[in-house]
Design a protein around this nucleic acid. Sequence first.
DNA 1: GTGTTACGCTACGAGCCGTAGCGGAACGGC
DNA 2: GCCGTTCCGCTACGGCTCGTAGCGTAACAC
Lengths: 187, 187
Amino acid sequence: MLDATRAALVELGWSKLTLGDVAARAGVAKTTLYRRWPGKSALVVDAVAVLFDELELPDRGSLAADVGGVVRSFAALLERPETATALMALVAESTRDPGLRDRIRTAVVDRQKRLVLEGRARAQARGELPPDADPVAAARQADLVFDVIAGAVVHRVLVSGEPADDAWVTAFTALLVAGLGALTPPG
Amino acid sequence: MLDATRAALVELGWSKLTLGDVAARAGVAKTTLYRRWPGKSALVVDAVAVLFDELELPDRGSLAADVGGVVRSFAALLERPETATALMALVAESTRDPGLRDRIRTAVVDRQKRLVLEGRARAQARGELPPDADPVAAARQADLVFDVIAGAVVHRVLVSGEPADDAWVTAFTALLVAGLGALTPPG
DNA sequence: GTGTTACGCTACGAGCCGTAGCGGAACGGC
DNA sequence: GCCGTTCCGCTACGGCTCGTAGCGTAACAC
């Protein structure tokens, strides 16, 4: 079912995707889809969410290398046509649907944020970042870094429409790591 | 016409917005809309584009203050319900429609990027940033900064779903300015 | 043997899309 | 005063999608 949804997303995109189509591809009655999911948005959330499971963050030895790695893998995910068209449409829908917003958060956003927390803890263990003084300040900084990384990649790939190639990834990583390094030693 | 489109966006959101609705609100026949715009997407692009004209960048005296200013005004624009639901949906559509992508670029993206170029030139005049050595490298850095700023704000407001309040703006500005400052003096 | 659950299939009213066809109003040239 | 052009409003239409209702059936539990 979710496979059929992703296939339909690749071929038709979000706007022209119909539940009748998905049902036909999956060899399933349209009724069954409506019995399991309340609508198009919820179905696509589940279909796309599994793609974010493949995001991992192996230890590459330094904060800069870890940031570069997560940026690269996230960009690779966004350059797949299914995720690109679906993610933006879902975010647009979630603007007017709090329930959908929660689904997206638990199914997609939290899975990415986990990587940031992981890389951050690793950098602290290496001594590249100072340990947490205040836990709420630490959470705020993690959220900030997450928004910067994910936002920049999304904007580069989907809005500016240019690839996140090696040159861009290294430049962005350098900027972010330099900012973190310059900001935290004194404070 | 565009006023009616924005009003319908506020009330219905992107997905439930119909051209018949817009026509009724504008006191105009549905045919007229189709005579002027090829479809829903193009109409909404024009309706939203004018909102980006109010973005300006007064000289606030320092690079940090200028960045904070543009972040604040951009965030205020994104927190309006019309722009939030429309922008993301348009980006989603543009992944499958190169023509729409160009419309968005000229009508929305370029208007924002202008601010970045302006602030950058101003910071160079103040001596806060080094002058351009290589023009293509300068353009690349400007694009990078633009993606970081716009992407972070969009992600914060629309994906994370939390407001870009003063605390966040100052933290983000500090991170970005520190990164720019730490990166460029040696190079 | 029976209740429960889940599914497939058909059919339906409702709504929107995008277009065609027709008639009317404004404007300009002469 | 006459006529061509252009723009608009209005109605109507075929086609498509939505989401639901109704009915029959297969698997499973006990």
